[in-house]
Design a protein around this nucleic acid. Structure first.
Length: 304
DNA sequence: AACGCGTCCAACCGCCTATCG
DNA sequence: ACGATAGGCGGTTGGACGCGT
């Protein structure tokens, strides 16, 4: 165990960012003795850093096989998600499955994902719509009575847009879907979800700005037939689909639901997102299977 | 230009386990 | 067996940066 800091330690231990010179000294030491004896670096007065600090620096930044400066690939994201579900927050263990990635990398990746979700899950103020920071798909689908379009149009439109959609109307759930044309892992993953889903959706149209508008006026008996009208907003094409944000599922609003809504079917499998109790009857059995358990774990904490 | 906000990530902290004398 | 030390790990922090207003 690291001994308690003495006065000597406090005044002679350097902290903070590493300089190029320090890195060189550390690398020389590793080249000469291997990645061990970290504490001797200090006792030999080579560096005024703790052994732990030296080790951390080498492991996270100076190791020769590191992928520094490049984002996690789709495949890496997939691996992290799967392994996190299997091992929990065992970042060091997970990192061993990812060539050139450290536990710190994995941890940071996961943490930023989690924070993003946390932020988005906070209910936005209707009077002050949340700004889109380039991370949230701009085009949401809103439950609203709109002119009908054919199922072909619906499908075509769906395939044309990285759409979000609503699982049902009274319990407003908006789930961002990926641009399915993009061959990254998240898209593939959600596409699979989509294929397996049996969600009762209602009517749709594109919302041409990052709006959190939703309709809560319908009761479950009065919903119109499923419709999607992209022609209402010709500018939608300008809402250029951005690379889909990893594993993006958002819940913006929830309301009580007395009865499920049955109309247009969309296919996906999604977690209950912590909302099972309030609207269980709207969610088909098996609905949340095959969804990343980390998502489930996360959404467990979402307040109603 | 200044400011606010969100994201990223390097580095620290504290705890735990392994190892050594 | 036991205490001291080293190393490993997960959680957290804070600064740099980019972007929008």
């Amino acid at each position: 165990m690291e001994r308690k800091q003495s006065e000597f330690d406090r005044t002679h231990v350097k902290k903070g960012p590493w300089s190029v010179e320090e890195d060189e000294v550390l690398l020389k030491h590793v080249n000469k003795y291997g990645p061990r004896d970290w504490s001797s670096i200090r006792t030999k007065d080579l560096l005024h850093r703790t052994g732990k600090s030296c080790r951390l620096r080498w492991v996270n930044k100076l190791r020769p096989d590191l992928k520094s400066g490049c984002k996690f690939s789709a495949e890496e994201e997939r691996v992290v998600i799967e392994l996190q579900a299997e091992f929990g927050n065992k970042w060091a263990k997970i990192a061993t499955y990812l060539e050139g990635r450290t536990d710190n990398d994995v941890k940071n990746f996961w943490s930023s994902r989690r924070k993003r979700l946390e932020r988005i899950l906070k209910k936005p103020s209707p009077s002050k719509p949340q700004k889109n920071k380039g991370k949230i798909p701009l085009n949401l689908i809103q439950v609203e009575e709109v002119p009908a379009c054919s199922s072909n149009q619906l499908e075509e439109n769906y395939n044309s847009y990285p759409a979000s959609y609503i699982l049902n109307t009274e319990e407003i759930k908006m789930v961002h879907l990926p641009d399915l044309t993009k061959p990254n892992y998240q898209n593939q993953y959600l596409e699979n979800d989509l294929n397996a889903m049996d969600v009762k959706a209602t009517s749709f149209h594109m919302v041409p700005e990052p709006s959190f508008a939703y309709s809560s006026g319908y009761n479950c008996h009065q919903l119109p037939e499923p419709q999607m009208d992209f022609t209402l907003f010709p500018g939608c094409h300008d809402l250029a689909p951005e690379p889909f944000d990893p594993n993006f599922i958002d819940i913006f609003e929830q309301k009580n639901c007395s009865e499920s809504v049955s109309s247009q079917k969309f296919v996906t499998k999604l977690p209950t997102l912590g909302l099972e109790g309030s609207c269980q009857n709207t969610i088909p059995n098996g609905f949340f299977e095959e969804f990343p358990t980390e998502m489930l774990e996360y959404f467990e904490h979402v307040p109603n």
